[in-house]
Design a protein around this nucleic acid. Structure first.
Lengths: 317, 317
DNA sequence: CTGAAAGCGCTTACAG
DNA sequence: CTGAAAGCGCTTACAG
């Protein structure tokens, strides 16, 4: 079922059909003809062939978003929906892609040829080269030096513990190497906030999944007089709380712990985990517009937005 | 940079270049020419235009895998890598897509035109129609009547509790409507296993996130003499355990609870959650071959495989 | 062994 | 207002 079929069925030329279907400006198609074309296309179930369109236009109208390999919280689904909706309205399509470090398949941008790649995650050097060679423009929404997306939550965490009267704070890092960069950003922001509040510098320790580091950290913190722990995320917070309870150190006193991300399981935990929730509503439009600016669909770059971060206080602080 | 450029640069015809680059059988290209073409293509950084290939071939060589909207456990990343690697070797590309119920963007299959859609998740009726209209073949790896992927873990859960001496069992359902179908499958399998073991039928209750249903279920089970709870997944297990502890019902005694999926946070929980881990190694090849059979690249369908399910006993049972 | 050519389905400048 | 036609980059049957 091609545009030619629609034209033939109507006794029109392919051009007229194309003008109607593409809403080409500068054409004066009588409304009657327009309606006939639309109705016939609908009746025949005509769908333009995207490969032919891409070939002819010289552009795929595809935007690829790189997603991190670690599990994403529920809020991201809505975020992605918002981004893809906004792109959709501008005639672009969002494709998400999770590139693993040891991925053995050809990168997806080779086959799909997106016009823009949105890097929510960093690319390896080899992948960056390959992506550029494929003709895509890389737009990083998360750069290491400037990261409104990831850091401000850490400030909220520290301020929350401070407002609850804690003066000697620690920071719990995850041990997953994929999270190292992100964790360093949040930790530094926490550190800066602590200084700004006149607190001693944070006592930074790692809290891993099965290796006893969480237990060690908790003992160390107790001996050092730490009363509040800022955890990288809710899983790290859970590991710290778990280790504390097993060492018979009470939570929230003598040790308060706050996580980050508002993961579902934090509510099930006993004690329920205090956390920071990121509101990404405004972000979706910003990210979509960043992509549209990248493909030249928008005249100027969107103004940066900072997501909202809210403390959700539960039982662990 | 097109194949024509490569041909021109070498003083050859476009056909010869095409034959070399595509390894077309039945052509006798002198090895010297072949090497020259390969070297020149490499030197010029030639990459075939996928849109042109798709248009000419009449097929996109794209396989789309529908992913569920809920967060996936870490093991899935490896699974997807395995599937895409196998497809890659056969010349196909895997694209993953998460279709949300209230998605407002045009479905991705409209734009990408995959040859096959692998449904790890179910499609709405409207989406099924739209996907078929786009020309894709839908291959369901998870069907309601035959579900080796999702159900056998529930059998392991029940057998584990039975082997620990529990005779009066309950089943904890999630309250997320997106999980309803999957949960029903697991619950039924648990129910069948209980019958086979000569146990009373399971006392089924829902355990939700914030609505007090978990607390209610736990109280009800205590009064009904239930000693073992099979939970849909680890989050549901966590909710049940949390509610039990808050109601001062001990875990694992008098109430043992086993989850499913081996989520990271289950290890951090106090008590650490017993669970069932799904080994999906063999599955990747099966799913990839299902797709390749769907596109006609394989003569006959792959033999079904059942993933391994292993009980991981921790403190909650 | 290699070249000239058709045609996939589309968009759109050009000519009426 | 509408049609005939070019051409995007590729693959491949056909003719030498």
């Amino acid at each position: 079922m091609t545009a030619a079929d629609v034209a033939r069925s109507l006794g029109l030329s392919r051009a007229t059909v194309g003008f109607v279907l593409n809403n080409t400006p500068g054409q004066t198609i009588p409304d009657k003809t327009r309606q006939r074309v639309l109705a016939e296309a609908e009746r025949l179930g005509y769908r333009p062939n995207p490969a032919a369109q891409a070939l002819r236009r010289g552009s795929t109208r595809l935007v690829m978003m790189l997603l991190p390999a670690w599990p994403m919280e529920a809020g991201w689904a809505e975020f992605l929906d918002d981004v893809s909706f906004r792109l959709d309205q501008a005639g672009y399509t969002l494709v998400t892609y999770t590139r693993r470090i040891d991925d053995r398949a050809k990168p997806l941008w080779e086959t799909l040829r997106p016009e823009v790649i949105l890097g929510l995650d960093d690319l390896s050097d080899a992948d960056t080269l390959s992506a550029k060679a494929s003709g895509a423009k890389i737009v990083l929404t998360q750069s290491v030096s400037d990261s409104p997306l990831v850091a401000p939550g850490a400030e909220q965490q520290v301020r929350h513990l401070h407002s609850r009267g804690h003066r000697r704070l620690a920071y719990a890092m995850p041990d997953d190497p994929r999270l190292a960069d992100l964790a360093a950003l949040r930790r530094d922001m926490a550190q800066r906030t602590a200084s700004a509040l006149g607190l001693e510098s944070l006592d930074v320790r790692s809290a891993g999944l099965d290796d006893g580091t969480a237990a060690e950290a908790v003992r160390h913190w107790r001996d050092a007089g730490v009363t509040g722990v800022v955890a990288y995320n809710d899983l790290t917070a859970a590991l710290v709380v778990g280790a504390a309870l097993r060492a018979e150190i009470g939570v929230p006193a003598p040790l308060a712990v706050i996580g980050h991300d508002d993961s579902d399981f934090g509510r099930a935990f006993v004690p329920a985990l205090s956390t920071v929730r990121m509101g990404i509503g405004a972000l979706a439009r910003y990210v979509a517009d960043l992509a549209l600016y990248g493909v030249g669909h928008l005249e100027k770059p969107p103004s940066p937005v900072t997501p909202d971060f809210d403390v959700v206080r539960r039982e662990s602080t």
